[in-house]
């Protein structure tokens, strides 16, 4: 339990730093990848907090966030897909 309490500030500071790059990011891609990494780390943080709170019922949120964190990436990629038609019926 001591390890978890010591590690929590590291994660919180990392979240803030990711968010700073997400705010600053010169292009939209910089913001996207940093917010994406933020989502994965929040998922890991939720898992660690579920050990801290001693309840495995809380793990569901971590699963959902890990499943869909990449939807943001796909959304951004799809927006640019309008200008560059890629893909097809099979292969690239």
């Amino acid at each position: 339990m001591v390890f978890i309490i010591v590690s929590i500030p590291l994660y919180i500071v990392a979240f803030i730093l990711y968010a700073v790059r997400g705010f600053k990011g010169p292009t939209v891609f910089d913001s996207t990848i940093s917010i994406d990494a933020l989502c994965y780390d929040v998922s890991a943080f939720m898992v660690i907090l579920s050990v801290y709170f001693r309840s495995y019922l809380l793990l569901g949120a971590g699963i959902l966030l890990a499943l869909w964190a990449y939807i943001l990436d796909v959304v951004i990629a799809r927006y640019y897909d309008r200008f560059t038609r890629i893909g097809g019926d099979g292969g690239d």
Partner: peptide, 13 residues
Amino acid sequence: KIYGLSLIVRAVS
């Protein structure tokens, strides 16, 4: 024709 994202994204999706 189907337009989609790259092969990797389609496979993982």
